[in-house]
């Protein structure tokens, strides 16, 4: 019995190990190639770098200097940070308003927000881009406003669900203790919402950071482009000889922040992503 179990466990471990290797392989291959000379990447993509092919950080240096990688990285960081902060703050306020002020208008607002969750982006991509240009939102600051509008659906929905479970009495106690509605929200309601706020922040951060089509349409592929747009441009744009080494380095640099972020906040990320899935 015991040996049978041991054999079975060993088999399971071997299987899981093989699968892990398969899951990590694509990332490992990119990393491996980013350290190889240009020529060897297309010649022998699956062999690890050796003394002959190893070029150290050369590709990374090229990657930084050639494409305006740093600029795109900064754009993405700026847009992600401010969009997420704006979404978390403003949609939580809106959700509280919708849940606590019950009338036909707020109910209608809620239905619109929920409705927006099922509409695919392609449905509004052309017209939204039109308004973005008309209203001069086609810059890294303006796009934050657009992200607020697009993120509102899921975020209001998730905050509302949680706010409904907070007893009204806590807010009434705050009113009696001397809070105005604004103080009630910031001193009492928002601190209680913190777990949901973390979930909403993670879901939106993953979305905005990785989003391609919206920033491509609104910001274009010029100096305001975000990281995914830069990656797409670098890997598909133009003909002729591409600097494969620099491109590999770019892919690695694009993945790296996410993986570091993931390894540090793994618990929250997995919880947040699952909560978003189950609710949405």
């Amino acid at each position: 019995m015991k040996t049978k179990r041991r054999i079975r466990n060993t088999a399971v471990y071997i299987l899981l190990f093989v699968l892990s290797v398969a899951f990590l392989a694509p990332i490992a291959i990119i990393l491996m190639n980013s350290l190889k000379g240009n020529f060897y990447i297309s010649q022998a993509p699956f062999t690890p770098p050796d003394s002959e092919t190893f070029v150290g950080a050369e590709n990374f240096i090229k990657g930084f200097s050639q494409s305006d990688f740093m600029r795109s990285f900064a754009n993405s960081a700026f847009i992600t940070v401010f969009s997420v902060a704006g979404i978390v703050l403003l949609t939580s306020m809106t959700a509280w308003y919708i849940v606590r002020v019950k009338n036909k208008f707020t109910r209608l607002m809620y239905y619109f927000f929920v409705f927006s969750m099922i509409v695919p982006f392609q449905m509004v991509m052309y017209t939204m881009t039109y308004y973005a240009f008309e209203l001069q939102l086609n810059n890294p600051v303006g796009i934050v406003f657009i992200y607020l509008g697009f993120g509102a659906g899921l975020s209001v929905f998730m905050f509302s669900g949680f706010i409904k479970s907070i007893p009204n009495e806590i807010e009434e106690a705050a009113i009696i203790d001397g809070c105005s509605p604004i103080k009630t929200f910031f001193l009492v309601v928002f601190p209680i919402l913190k777990p949901t706020a973390i979930t909403v922040a993670i879901l939106n951060a993953m979305w905005v950071w990785n989003d391609y089509l919206l920033p491509y349409l609104v910001l274009g592929s010029g100096e305001n482009k975000t990281l995914p747009v830069a990656v797409q441009m670098a890997l598909t744009g133009g003909y002729g000889n591409k600097d494969m080494g620099a491109l590999m380095a770019m892919l690695v640099l694009a993945i790296l922040p996410i993986i570091i972020f993931y390894l540090f906040c793994q618990k929250y990320i997995i919880k947040g992503v699952v909560a978003g899935a189950v609710k949405g």
């Binding site: 007893p167 009434e172 009492v188 209680i192």
Partner: peptide, 13 residues
């Protein structure tokens, strides 16, 4: 005035 609620309504945080 001061009020004591059925659910106590303490601030959880």
């Amino acid at each position: 005035i001061a009020m004591v609620f059925q659910s106590y309504a303490l601030y959880p945080h």
